[in-house]
Computed example of a mutant assay.
Amino acid sequence: MVFLGGYTERKQGLAYLDLQTLEQLRAGIQPSPLPVYGCGVSTSLQSALDPLRIKYP
Rank of each mutant, 00 (worst) to 15 (best):
P57R: 07
Y37T: 10
T8H: 10
P51T: 06
P33F: 05
K55F: 09
D18G: 06
P57G: 07
C39F: 13
V36K: 10
E9M: 08
E23C: 01
C39Y: 11
Y7N: 14
T8I: 08
P57C: 01
E9F: 06
L34G: 05
M1A: 15
R10F: 12
L19N: 07
R10D: 13
G38E: 05
G6D: 13
Q20A: 07
Q20H: 01
Q20I: 00
E23N: 04
R10Q: 14
Y56G: 08
P35K: 02
K55A: 11
S42K: 04
L22W: 00
Y56K: 05
V41S: 09
L25G: 00
L4Q: 10
Y56W: 07
L19V: 05
P35H: 06
F3S: 13
P57V: 00
S47E: 13
V36W: 09
Q20W: 02
S47H: 08
C39W: 12
Y37N: 09
P35V: 01
G38L: 06
Y7M: 12
I54L: 13
L17K: 12
S32K: 14
L49T: 05
C39D: 14
D18Q: 07
C39E: 13
Q24E: 05
Q46K: 06
S47V: 04
L34P: 01
P51R: 06
K11P: 15
Q30K: 15
Q24G: 01
L19P: 00
Q46V: 04
G40P: 02
L34M: 08
Y7H: 14
L45M: 15
L34H: 09
T43H: 00
I54P: 04
R26K: 07
P33T: 02
P31R: 01
L52K: 15
R10G: 10
Q20G: 03
Y37V: 10
V2M: 09
Q30H: 09
A48E: 10
F3M: 09
E9T: 10
S42H: 04
